[in-house]
Design a protein around this nucleic acid. Structure first.
Length: 423
RNA sequence: GGAGAGGUGUCUGAGUGGUCGAAAGAGCACGCCUGGAAAGUGUGUAUACGCCAAAAGUGUAUCGAGGGUUCGAAUCCCUCCCUCUCCGCCA
């Protein structure tokens, strides 16, 4: 959520930045400024009437105590009108604030100055590409066929007990999941992130805090009986750990990592692009989150990107890094890097991580502040990234590492899997 | 799920209608004291929004949340949420 005071003081810039994000309802900006004007005026009026009423009440108390009952009664006579006025102004203020809130939550975050213009994924900027794309032997298979061939994943069983998009991992397939999770967590810990294990259901306030609500509730599974949402990513519970918190300056940066399953409803496309592990309703992911001083957030973003790239390198996967264009970026992000791995059997790039700086956009919703050098409270910057999401890593590993003798497990994972080959 | 108790500032905790944004203590910050520290001592120590160019200042709101009674609510009433104790159920 953008800050009203910022919009008020930087109208032109806000309009220009929103356009980069391909945001259409630009008229909202002026409506918000106008509503804010109205809000301040109303509050001003209400405050001054309340001040009158408060001092009258104080006077009455004084008079009652000194036994001047009649004088007290005289003053009392005036208070009725004020009371009514306060009520009217209060209702108006609440209505204006409500209206303002409803509009301001519709504005996406402003993109960073380095974000390229553009509306489609094709316009994302390739920042770098690393690792050689493997050439596979004749008869190499896509991962969903490898999964069946080696009895690693049973998609049909998942359909039977739940539905499409809920795979059942078996045998070495299940162990590979566990190994990746443990490896990713260990690497995060080495990089200074402290691990948390979290609730998988969150309340409405948490959904609002990180920007899933309002508006995007369709992407989350909802437990109506208890008014709870299944988390679409660990970002939600981890970041909300710091909702309504004022951190001391020396508590920054906050670095947390966590493994959770993630649940996404994602009504979406069909065909080969969603086959196998390419798109799921439930998947596993290790997430890294930081809360930092605003001066350092872009430096930190590069560090998080480097961390993710390090994982991909260690796993021996060819990857590339994209700087997302305005139109392809999420609602809450100011700058996002996507990491994609090259899936050799599918002959296409698969997104395996997304690392973003949200600047104060989430912090403003969360009321996540820190005490700055002047001792005043200031909104912190939040960042997060997948490090990493499992399914497409598994897909790429299976496909890229297949040989006629089986699938080779990357060296760094062997201590975790305790096996070197799937065959 | 049933019965009871309770939710006050960073913490402990006082406060049952006005003098309460809130006693006291602890903690923390700064100063004095000290060779240095401890002890002692002094001062300060919530957040948000508004007014003000800004600092200073000042107005308003906030004692779990929302509503009500009243000239006036931390204090009384209603609803909800949460915590604790006992019982029940349960991995």
């Amino acid at each position: 959520m953008l800050q009203v005071s910022y919009i008020r003081d930087n109208r032109e810039q806000v309009l220009e930045r929103l356009a980069v994000k391909n945001f259409k309802q630009l008229e909202l900006v002026d409506e918000i400024i106008e509503l804010d004007e109205k809000r301040r005026q109303t509050q001003n009026e209400m405050d001054s009437v309340s001040a009158k009423a408060n001092s009258a009440a104080k006077q009455i108390g004084e008079l009652m105590r000194t036994g001047k009952k009649e004088e007290a009664e005289t003053i009392k006579a005036n208070t009725g009108a004020w009371k009514e006025e306060i009520k009217t102004l209060g209702d108006a203020l609440a209505a204006t604030e409500e209206e303002l809130q409803q509009k301001i939550v519709l504005l996406p975050n402003l993109p960073h100055s380095s974000v390229p213009k553009g509306t489609t994924p094709e316009e994302n900027e390739v920042v770098l590409e690393d690792g050689a794309k493997p050439s596979l032997y004749d008869g190499a298979l896509p991962h969903w066929e490898l999964a069946t061939k080696y009895n690693l994943i049973d998609f049909e069983l998942g359909v039977k007990i739940t539905g499409a998009g809920f795979p059942v991992y078996k045998g070495k397939g299940a162990k590979l999941q566990r190994a990746l999770i443990a490896y990713f967590l260990d690497e995060a810990e080495k990089a200074g992130y402290s691990e948390v294990m979290l609730p998988l259901l969150v309340n409405e306030a948490s959904g609002f805090g990180t920007g899933q609500l309002p508006d995007k509730e369709g992407q989350m599974y909802f437990v109506g009986q208890d008014n709870l949402f299944l988390i679409p990513t660990a970002e939600v519970p981890i970041t909300n750990l710091y909702r309504d918190v004022i951190l001391k300056a020396d508590e920054l940066p906050v670095k947390n990592c966590g493994y959770t399953p993630c649940f996404r409803r994602e009504a979406g496309s069909y065909g080969a692009h969603v086959r196998g592990l390419n798109r799921l309703h439930q998947f596993d992911k290790v997430e890294i989150v930081q809360v930092v001083h605003p001066d350092t957030s872009y430096e930190v973003l590069e560090g998080m990107s480097a961390h993710v790239q390090g994982l991909l390198k260690n796993l021996g996967l060819p990857y590339r890094v994209l700087r997302l264009c305005g139109g392809d970026m999420g609602f809450t992000a100011a700058l996002t890097y996507d990491m994609e791995t090259w899936s050799a059997a599918q002959q296409r790039w698969l997104e395996v991580s997304s690392v973003s700086n949200f600047e104060t956009f989430q912090a403003n919703r969360l009321k996540l502040r820190f005490r700055n050098a002047e001792g005043k409270t200031q909104l912190a910057h939040t960042l997060n990234g997948s490090a990493l999401a499992l399914p497409r890593i598994v897909a790429t590993l299976l496909e890229n590492n297949q040989t006629e003798d089986g699938i080779k497990i990357p060296d760094v994972l062997v201590p975790y899997t305790k096996f070197e080959w799937i065959n």
